[in-house]
């Protein structure tokens, strides 16, 4: 292992807080505002890290441990994600399962900490988070399994290496469906607009924001940073898949990867500016639709042959 292997993970760790900034700038441009600086989240994180934390007397060690443990989970998952030509820091057969369960563990900790505060409001958010992710997780699993089935590798590194332009010629339609499913899961898991509104703070329909209401200071910084890393991680799955169609290699592919991540953030900004949030009852139906599409893609991957 050389220093080169760390490039993919380090770029994620450094650049991830840029994505929410780009999304916010896109939304501001749509609304005719100049908007907050692109680097706003970096400033927020530095400010929060210098502050002290306030803890409610009802909370226990679970509440205090969750932000750091959650950040550790998502950083661990990031180590298995390649960035186009930059290889992943670590990889083994079956790490796709580990990555998805790292995300699951992070969600579990967030939910536990929300319940630990004893606030009924946060419990409501936790219940919604669990309900939606119970449907989003199978969609993600089946979508990634489709890619694994085509490429014949069960690690993210081997999986994206196995997807060549030739594979796209044969399985292109199935991959397009997988891309759609991954984008839906990306929006749901990161609490973006058709499902959750990251800007609301006092509404009965919010999900992610309500669970982290009680955090302050460094803990909040950890939670916000972990959320941006999760945005980067799931975005990287989409961008890696889309990049594999182009078939570029070398440092050009890595630059293209970074540009595509920013493009993805702009697309999310456009979606948030042009769409209203779905009513809460329609979200599960959308997610069942995503599962159905993922199963369709999985069946297609067996049917289409090169």
């Amino acid at each position: 292992m050389t220093a080169f292997h760390a490039v993919a993970m380090l770029s994620g760790l450094v650049l991830a807080p840029l994505l929410p900034g780009v999304i916010n700038r896109t939304k501001a441009a749509f609304a005719g505002r100049s908007g907050q600086p692109v680097l706003q989240l970096y400033h927020d994180l530095i400010k929060l890290l210098r502050k002290g934390a306030v803890y409610s007397r009802t909370t226990t060690w679970v509440f205090r441990a969750a932000p750091a443990a959650g950040l550790a989970c998502v950083s661990g998952a990031l180590a298995f994600m390649p960035a186009a030509s930059a290889p992943a820091l670590a990889s083994f057969g079956g790490d796709i399962v580990l990555v998805v369960y790292f995300l699951g563990l992070m969600r579990f900790l967030t939910v536990l900490s929300a319940l630990d505060t004893g606030s009924s409001f946060e419990g409501m958010g936790a219940s919604r988070e669990v309900q939606f992710s119970a449907l989003a997780e199978p969609a993600l699993f089946v979508a990634v399994a489709t890619l694994a089935r085509v490429s014949g590798s069960e690690s993210f590194a081997g999986l994206f290496a196995g997807l060549t332009p030739a594979a796209w010629m044969a399985y292109g339609p199935a991959f397009m469906v997988v891309l759609t499913v991954l984008f839906l899961v990306f929006l749901v898991e990161n609490a973006r607009i058709p499902v959750d509104d990251p800007n609301t703070h006092l509404e009965l329909t919010m999900i992610h924001e309500v669970m982290i209401l009680d955090y302050s200071g460094p803990d909040l910084a950890f939670v916000l940073y972990a959320a941006s890393l999760k945005l980067w991680l799931l975005g990287a799955v989409i961008v890696n898949l889309a990049m594999s169609a182009a078939g570029v290699t070398g440092s050009l592919a890595f630059v293209g990867f970074l540009a595509a991540m920013m493009l993805l953030a702009i697309v999310v900004g456009v979606v948030e500016s042009t769409m209203a949030r779905l009513s809460l009852l329609k979200v599960p139906r959308m997610l069942v639709g995503a599962v159905a599409l993922a199963l369709l893609a999985f069946a297609l991957a067996g049917r289409l042959s090169p």
């Binding site: 010629m169 469906v177 369709l296």
Partner: peptide
């Protein structure tokens, strides 16, 4: 083998799922 034809088929399959899932 036939990416264009298969894409059209997949598009039709997706419209079938849309019909089953839409409430309007």
């Amino acid at each position: 083998m036939m990416p264009l034809v298969d894409s059209v088929h997949v598009l039709i399959l997706v419209t079938c799922l849309l019909l089953l899932g839409s409430s309007r």
